[in-house]
Amino acid sequence: MKHIKSYIVLGLLLVSFGAIAQNQNAIRLNEVLVINENDFQDDFGQQNAWFELFNSSFGTVDVGGCFLSDDINNLQKYRIPKGDITTKIKPRQHALFWADCQPNRGTYHVSFNLEPGRVLYFVAGDGRTIIDQITIPDLAPNQSYGRTDDGLGTVDGSGEGWEVLSHTSPSGSNGTVDGETKSQKMARIDPYGWIMAVTAMSVVFSALIILYLIFKQIGKASIRRSSKKTASSNASDEVKAAAAEAAKTEGVSGEVYAAISTAFHLYCEENEAHDEESFVVTLQHTDRSYSPWSSKIYQLRETPQLKRK
């Protein structure tokens, strides 16, 4: 029992570790600027090289404990401090790091500089797994290199999806600074709503048509199965005859049965075929101790029963 508990705890730890790792996997290097002459200033009023991380997921990700480096042989060059609440990057948001080689200035100042030709790495909390990397190209002063659309593109350092950006956007979106919302986009491309109506109705119809086709087949299979069962049952001749009789009357509505029953009841009543009833109903109190703990209706499920054919 003790071992089972340990395994469960271990399993949960592994699962939670996996979940954390999976969250960190959503972090992307998003934009870098190497020569900062009159671009963004840090809190100390200084202009240094910077790079940006982007949380591409729809959940908050804590990058505390992860590593940043520009050296493949030392992936643990700068460890992002743990316990700083600002390292929790909100969904689809950015975090800006200063590559000024002055880590004593705070969480967001790393211990290396950016240089063209070097590779910038974002490394998971295990210090070994490279989550994202990018080779820094030659850039003019105040020019940044970033993903065309936030978070999109390769993570192998090949630079696919990256380009020299027309304007820098530290802690901001690269491609959609002046972008439009989905609603604005719809207003532009579909001002009268017809495209939306046709698209959405096609999807609604498709979904329900597929459901229809599936359940048509399931229904057919079910009918076949029940007919097969009936045919293979080892019924007596009498039962078979009754079944045949019942089959003949298939299609007769319940109302007909109700009418026959009522007529039969009235006939019996007229001919006094029934016993005379007293028509007195009494409730007799029985002193039975009751507890919900022993009540069958409150049980979670019925006791399993072994059914033998």
Partner: peptide, 15 residues
């Protein structure tokens, strides 16, 4: 199950 399609058609009201 063909009645499912009526449920789809009535969604024209939304659009």
């Amino acid at each position: 199950p063909k009645l499912l399609l009526i449920g789809a058609a009535a969604q024209f009201g939304i659009f």
